[in-house]
Design a protein around this nucleic acid. Structure first.
Length: 593
DNA sequence: CCAAGATGTCATGAG
DNA sequence: TCCTCATGACATCTT
């Protein structure tokens, strides 16, 4: 089991995860039983209106059922975060090395001391963390190239509200490694009670501490036995030693944390096609204090005004959920309110100014595209000034065979050569919506704009002014209903898009946060190892200088140094130190239960 | 011709 | 109860 296999496996995992991650979000659309009777009735009406000109069978087969996506289930397993470290450092109460150390390893005591944090499990965990960092950095780069979204404060506590989902693919990766290499819960087994409570061998299996290999490290500092601090778990323990034998000590140096950062950035550059400069820039970003840019120009064009305000802090799930309600209320409650739309979504904050004078307030939101593509509710006369728009956009008038209606309402072409007016009329007919054609066919005496956008009182007033047949009234009501629903659907879709954008931004924020935390974790590990080395040196120096009454050095097999609560250091017999160490080990276990 | 996206429409539920 | 809005689902059209 070499590192190369790790690398390849991890790369494959990343590729797979990346692919899965880029898949569309499954909105959970499921097909419901649909009653076609009503629609069929409407179609019959349409057919009547079209005078049977359109006979084609529009009922094609159902589309294929959307396949259930292989959504990654959050495989969040106990991933460790730097928060654990202070506690770990303060609770360095590990087993006495001599108790668990196989005699054959006695001569290797010092080499693992320098790699105390690179136990097999720890290495694995760090590798997984690396993968996470790389994954997130890659995604961050991906997204940041599309839009600037470094806006939310990194410390936003709300941003942790739904931190699990975005990590799903990464954790999937973790779990894969765990499956093959053992649980990452062993991450810090160096300090885990399990490692501390390993069976005690005879006191004679002493571990040499000094370079002369003549002494053991079976010493304790008060309640804190320092000896085990210098021994990685694979040497202390034998039960969970799944990867230890395969990983010789020199490998520990391969995963020096300083190298980890470089590796991650290099892989990032390789995987994402980024040059080293970009990678270094990314690293600088992470190296910054907050790790996040406070540039809150988060796609100012991508958020509606209401949501932009509601999501200025932006990172809580509540904000996302509330954004819908807030924007909806803004759209519906105020006559003057209008969506400030983003170009990316294709909407405009510009309210329709052409033909919505009276009813603009009731609309509240008009998509920009309606100016050019969807002229449904505009006075067709306004179109005459925009002949060039004939080729712009798509016409969703469903090709309702306008000629069928027009043949009844419009004068037939007098000849093959059409005049400009006729061309205009033809163009306007094409621009008319289905309901407009219907209204025209039914000789509705007012515009669809009024039908749709007038307040209900004025609408009723308008109806009372005319003598309308029941069919006309029914059509008018349908036009009003459909027109309002059309706008509602547009609003709804716009909100959905905004919500998705907000969620994407939140995910990116959380990914940055996680990447930062992982980097901090690496830093903690690095400093912890340095501390261990310092303590080891001090221990060796102190113990080596101690002399008994005869001027001879103390045997590490019989004595150990131990911290006292008041900061002093005591030289105690190793047997006593062992007993104290065992006592210390039981306490966390009992606490855990 | 197919797929994906855009848009309109309907049904339904909530306020 | 009626009106309006929001939204899922589907149909249709466009690209």
């Amino acid at each position: 089991m070499g590192w190369e296999s790790h690398l390849t496996a991890a790369s494959a995992d990343i590729d797979l995860i990346d692919i899965l991650w880029r898949q569309d979000i499954d909105l959970g659309a499921g097909r419901e039983i649909f009653d076609y009777s009503h629609r069929q009735k409407e179609q019959d009406v349409d057919k009547d209106l079209r005078d049977g000109a359109e006979q084609e069978d529009t009922w094609s087969g159902e589309g294929a059922e959307a396949l259930a996506r292989n959504l990654l289930v959050d495989g969040e397993t106990g991933e460790s975060f730097p928060a654990q470290f202070p506690a770990d450092i303060s609770s360095i109460t590990e087993a006495v090395p001599s108790e668990s150390e196989p005699p054959g390893l006695q001569n290797n005591l010092l080499s693992p001391l320098l790699t105390g944090t690179e136990s097999p499990f720890d290495l694995e965990q760090q590798w997984q963390d690396l993968m996470s960092i790389m994954e997130m950095q890659a995604m961050e780069v991906n997204t940041s190239t599309n839009e600037i979204l470094y806006n939310a404060p990194s410390g936003d506590p709300l941003s942790t509200n739904y931190s699990l989902a975005p990590n799903t693919p990464i954790n999937q990766n973790v779990s894969l490694h765990q499956a093959s290499l053992g649980g990452c819960s062993q991450d810090f087994s160096l300090f885990s009670p399990e490692a501390e409570s390993l069976p005690v061998a005879s006191g004679s299996t002493l571990l040499p501490l000094l370079p002369s290999n003549s002494t053991s490290l079976n010493s304790s500092f008060g309640s804190t036995n320092l000896a085990g601090l210098f021994f990685p778990p694979q040497l202390n323990g034998t039960a969970n030693d799944t990867a230890g034998p395969e990983l010789p000590d020199p490998l520990g140096g391969l995963l020096d944390e300083a190298m980890l950062d470089e590796i991650s950035l290099m892989d990032l550059a390789i995987e994402e096609g980024f040059n080293p400069v970009q990678a270094s820039q990314l690293e600088e970003e992470f190296d910054s204090d907050s790790g996040l840019s406070l540039d809150s120009s988060h796609s100012p064009s991508s958020l509606s005004s209401s949501e932009g305000s509601s999501s200025s802090s932006s990172s809580s799930s509540s904000s996302s959920s509330s954004s819908s309600s807030s924007s909806s209320s803004s759209a519906s409650s105020s006559a003057s309110s209008s969506f400030s739309e983003e170009g990316a979504v294709g909407y405009s904050s510009d309210s329709e100014t052409l033909d919505l004078e009276e009813a603009e307030g009731a609309v509240g939101y008009q998509p920009e595209y309606s100016k050019f593509c969807r002229m449904s509710y505009q006075d067709p006369s306004q179109l005459s000034c925009l002949p060039y728009l004939e080729h712009v956009g798509h016409n969703h008038t469903y090709n309702m065979a306008p000629s069928a209606l027009d043949s009844a309402d419009l004068p037939p072409p007098s000849g093959l050569k059409k005049g400009s007016k006729e061309k205009q009329a033809d163009f306007l007919d094409k621009q008319m919506s289905r309901d407009e054609h219907r209204a025209r066919a039914m000789k509705i005496p007012f515009t669809n704009d009024k039908i749709i956008n007038l307040p209900v009182e004025e609408f009723n007033e308008l109806l009372s002014k005319y003598q309308l047949s029941e069919a006309q009234l029914s059509l008018i009501r349908d036009i009003r209903r459909r027109g309002k629903n059309k706008m509602a659907a547009q609003n709804c879709r716009k909100r959905k898009l905004d919500t998705i954008l907000n969620l994407e931004r939140d995910v990116e924020d959380l990914q940055r946060d996680k990447a930062r935390l992982l980097r901090e974790k690496v830093e903690f590990l690095r400093s912890l190892r340095q501390m261990k080395q310092k303590v080891q040196s001090l221990y060796q120096e102190v113990f080596g200088r101690l002399r008994d009454e005869n001027g001879r050095p103390y045997s590490p097999s019989q004595y150990a140094l131990q911290y006292a609560g008041d900061g002093s250091v005591l030289l105690i017999p190793r047997t006593l130190a062992d007993q104290q160490a065992r006592r210390q080990e039981r306490k966390p276990k009992d606490r855990r239960k």
